[in-house]
Simulated scan of single mutants.
Amino acid sequence: MPRPSVSLPLHGGCACGAVRYTLTSAPLALFACHCSLCQRQSGSAFGLSMRVTRADLHLEGPTQTRLRDTDRGTKSEMVCCPDCGGRIFNARPGTALCHLRGGTLDDTSWLRPSAHIWTSSAQPWVSFGAETLIHDGQPDDLQPIVSLWQERFAPVFD
């Protein structure tokens, strides 16, 4: 499949439009998370997590940050719209990278994940492409996901 050309910056927002954002740098990776939390929050079979540089993600509008405990005993902050509850991104507090929810982009036509994580919780009807990485749970190292996305799945950013 040819890699599409996508122009920066990228734009997106929550479901009600109260929160808008601009991403000024190319995403580092895109993967699908099939954990039960992503299923519940998305109201679907999985969530799309786009790894981005947090300093290049510029939010406009009111947001609410919620902290939750992860299965690994760490904290995760979820930045959401206080009006519709739509999650914009999640991250470990104080880190330089975050996971932008891919479905919040204005243009999602080019999204193609390089991996599926937490497949042990995946819906039984979901199938995975042979070209993607598959993880039953949370991978210890995201670098193989990043590398594969950049080599084979990422669009050409201009």
Rank of each mutant, 00 (worst) to 15 (best):
G47D: 01
Q143Y: 02
T104D: 07
H34G: 08
M1T: 05
T70D: 00
V156F: 01
F31Q: 11
C81H: 07
S44I: 02
H99Y: 08
G129E: 15
W149A: 12
L28A: 06
H116V: 03
S120Q: 14
L133F: 04
C84W: 10
G103E: 05
Q39V: 05
F157L: 14
S36G: 01
P9F: 02
Q64D: 11
G13Q: 00
Q143F: 03
G13A: 02
P93R: 11
S49L: 05
L133A: 10
L142D: 15
G103T: 08
H135N: 13
Y21P: 00
G61T: 04
M1P: 13
G129M: 06
L10A: 02
T65V: 14
I88G: 09
R152G: 12
A26D: 07
G137V: 00
S49W: 00
A45Y: 00
G102I: 13
C33A: 12
D141G: 09
P124N: 05
Y21F: 14
S120R: 15
C16K: 02
T65E: 09
E77I: 10
H34A: 04
S7V: 01
T108N: 15
L28I: 09
M50F: 13
P2D: 05
I88H: 14
A96N: 11
G129T: 06
P9L: 01
T63F: 04
T95S: 15
A55Y: 00
F128T: 15
G12K: 02
A154S: 11
R92C: 05
P113C: 07
Q150D: 11
Q123F: 10
I88T: 08
D140S: 13
P155R: 10
Q123G: 03
L57S: 06
T74G: 03
T53L: 09
L148I: 10
W118R: 02
P27F: 07
A45W: 01
A26Q: 12
L28K: 14
R66D: 06
C35Q: 02
R101G: 04
T53N: 11
R54Y: 00
C14I: 02
E77M: 09
L23Q: 05
L8A: 11
Y21V: 08
A130S: 13
L148T: 06
D140C: 10
R68M: 12
P139G: 14
S7M: 07
P139N: 06
I88N: 13
R54N: 04
G73L: 06
R51T: 15
L105D: 05
L10S: 01
A122Q: 08
L100V: 08
S5W: 00
P27Y: 11
S7H: 10
D83K: 14
P9R: 05
W125C: 03
C14H: 03
C98P: 02
P113K: 09
D106Y: 12
G17W: 00
R40P: 00
